[in-house]
Every structure is written in structure tokens, then in C-alpha cells.
Design a binder for these strands. Structure first.
Lengths: 191, 191
DNA sequence: TTGCAAAACCCTAACCGTTAGCGTTACCGT
DNA sequence: ACGGTAACGCTAACGGTTAGGGTTTTGCAA
């Protein structure tokens, strides 16, 4: 048939997932994260509670369904960068791009929602830290080391910690620059 | 009466709190964190479930009852340091002291317990980050700034992130030095 | 000493996120 | 057409946490 081999099954599954996430996000934005329970999300999306958890690992994951890709971009910024660029430079640019993408997509209501719930903020931080090990490996390789040292882990965490700080700053782009300056300095003495 | 004005009331309250925490930690170490429920802890300590939560904000807080003081030590290391010492130097020494205190107190079973549960690890990270704002204020003051900039917040988080990394390292003291070298370099370019 | 407000505690019952167990429907490859 | 399996549903429960409302203990003053 057509080039897209996505069967009805996968399409329906994706549609269900989207419907759940959209319904949930809508309810959360409208009435607040804590005021809306999972049972209510399921009912509004016309699915069973178990189906919600078949698609999303937790209630918080419902909110962050959309920005999945941002995490890998950071790791790839190091591994797939141009030959003439240093790792800190590539990271600075990628973080700028990510922040820019968030701003142009008019994500301010979304940011307010996240800011309103400690659960969501915590989940977000964990989201970024979850990729710290992968980034630490890339950092170690970048510095020509076979094994991952505590310094590599620390640098990786420094970088992944930039986003939450920038998000809560008045001028996110300036915050990225300011913190990346620190990280670049730390990067040089690592060795 | 005597100089200690601690009435029977406060003493009894403190005793109840200790009894709960000791009972809980014993059960956790003996049978595993997840295998012991709050209802069981309450029963073993001969108190009501509501009493447990009157003393501790969460199940995880039962485990970390003892190392409350470590957090403030980091902040005080900056604010109460000698005149001739720089902030990064004071912090490096304090982190070393904290790690040493943990080792001499033979906290290895405790560390194993924390390492065995994602909930506990997460709670521990949060514990340290919770004081990041206080440390950020101290850092900003140390650098002669009236307001807290993103760089101050970043530096504070870098420092408070050392402990979890050191704890999981093979040589915690060396890890502290390694990471503090990075932070000291970052500190200098800040401003 | 007695009386009284507040603190500390208890019990019950529930809410909420999450999961196990098990059945049902819809899709896919053969 | 058909059998396997993926997606979904229902029910019931578990474990952390809290609200509501009562009982005992403590501190303090009349």
C-alpha cells in the first residue's frame, strides 16, 4: 500500500494517547493540576483508568508528553557536533535553541502550570537528570577518557541543571549564557 | 528550677518522635524499605498512623531524621567562615568534613538502604536542593551582589549536588576534591 | 487545689495514585 | 476464516496521606 506502513492499530493507539494527553492538559490548565484526579481524566477522555497508565507511567507524565525530544537534543549536541566546535560551545547553542523553541511555541500557560505544582517541577528536574548518565558518557569521551569520572558526572549534571534555572529566570537566554560561562570555565580545568 | 526549661511535654514529644524514627529505621534496615508500610511502623512504635505523620511529613522523612543538621552546615560554612578563607575553600573543607562524619559513624548500612530505594534517593536529592536558595543568597552576598543572579543559583546547586555524587563514588573524598576543583574554577569567572 | 485551654494523641474513614487479575474487543498476519 | 496478540475495560485492592472528630495529658493560672 502506501509508504506509511502504520496500521490502523498503531494509529488508533497513538490517537488514544493523544486524546488522553490533550484532555488531561486541558483539564489541568483549566482547573489546576491538583484539582483534577486521574479518574476524572480517564472519564473525560472516555477511557479506563488502566488505559491511562498503559500509555503514561505517571500522572505527571501526562503533562510532559509533548517535550519528549528536548532531552535527547542535549546529548546529541555533544555527540553529533561539528568538528570545529567545542562541547561547551555546542551545548550553549543547543540550550539557547531549546529555550527559543519553548518561547516561540507560546508555552507560557504551560510554564505556569508547571510552576504551580511541586510535583511537576520535581518531575521535570528528574526528566533532565535522567539523561545525565548518557551525557556524562559523552562528556567523558569528549575529554578523551575511557571511564566516567565524578568530574564528568558533575559537568553533565551542571549542564542539565541549566534548563530549570533558565525557565524560572526573568531573561532565560541571558541566564543560559551566564551559567554556561561558569560551566565552560569548569570544563577547562577538568583534566 | 534547673537551667533546662524543657518541660515534660516537649521531652515526651521528642521521645515519641525518636521512638518512631528508631522503630522505622530498624524495620527498614531489617526487611527493606518497600516491604514495611506506614501502618506497620505505627503499630510497631505503638502509635497511631496519624501520629506518625504529625511528626514526619512523609515516609521518606522517617529515614533522614538523623542527618538534618548536615544541610545547614553547608550554608554556615560560607556565612560563618574565617576572614582569610574564600567561599569555595570553606565549602571544600566542610564537604570533606561531612563525608568524613558519615564514614566514621559507620553509616554504610544506611547508605545501602538509601541506595536500595529510588524514593529515598530522590528524597535525598531534594533535601539538598531545598537549601539551594539559602546557599544562593550566601553566595550572592559573598560575591558582593545584592540580588541573586542565575549564576549564584547555579553555583549553589553545583555545590549541593556534590554530596549525592560523592556518596555513590568509590572514593568519596577524592570525588569531592575533583568536583570542587571544577566549582572553584567556575567561581572565579562568575562576575 | 481546681479549672481550663492547648497540645498531643487516637480512631475511623476516606481520597488519590497506582497496579494486579482477568475478561473482552479489534486488529494483524497467515 | 482463524488464531494470536495488542489494546482496552472492569473490579478490587494496596500504600501513602489527610480530614474529621474525639480523648487524654500537660501547662498554667485563678
Amino acid at each position: 500500500m502506501s509508504a506509511e506502513q502504520v496500521g490502523r492499530r498503531e494509529r488508533k493507539k497513538a490517537a488514544t494517547r493523544q486524546a488522553i494527553a490533550n484532555t488531561a492538559l486541558g483539564l489541568f490548565l483549566e482547573r489546576g493540576y491538583d484539582a483534577v484526579g486521574i479518574r476524572e481524566v480517564a472519564q473525560a477522555a472516555d477511557v479506563a483508568v488502566t488505559t491511562v497508565f498503559a500509555h503514561f507511567a505517571s500522572k505527571e507524565a501526562l503533562v510532559f508528553d509533548r517535550d519528549q525530544g528536548f532531552q535527547d537534543r542535549v546529548v546529541r549536541a555533544v555527540t553529533d557536533r561539528d568538528a570545529g566546535t567545542t562541547a561547551p560551545e555546542a551545548l550553549r547553542e543547543e540550550l539557547h535553541a531549546i529555550v527559543r523553541d519553548f518561547i516561540v511555541s507560546n508555552a507560557t500557560p504551560f510554564w505556569r502550570l508547571v510552576a504551580s505544582s511541586p510535583d511537576l517541577q520535581e518531575y521535570e528536574s528528574k526528566m533532565w537528570l535522567r539523561h545525565a548518565d548518557a551525557l556524562a558518557v559523552a562528556v567523558a569521551a569528549d575529554r578523551g577518557r575511557p571511564a566516567v569520572s565524578p568530574a564528568d558526572q558533575a559537568l553533565a549534571r551542571f549542564v542539565l541543571g541549566v534548563f530549570p534555572l533558565a525557565r524560572d529566570s526573568a531573561d532565560p537566554q541571558a541566564a543560559v549564557d551566564e551559567i554556561m560561562n561558569l560551566i565552560a570555565a569548569a570544563w577547562e580545568v577538568a583534566g
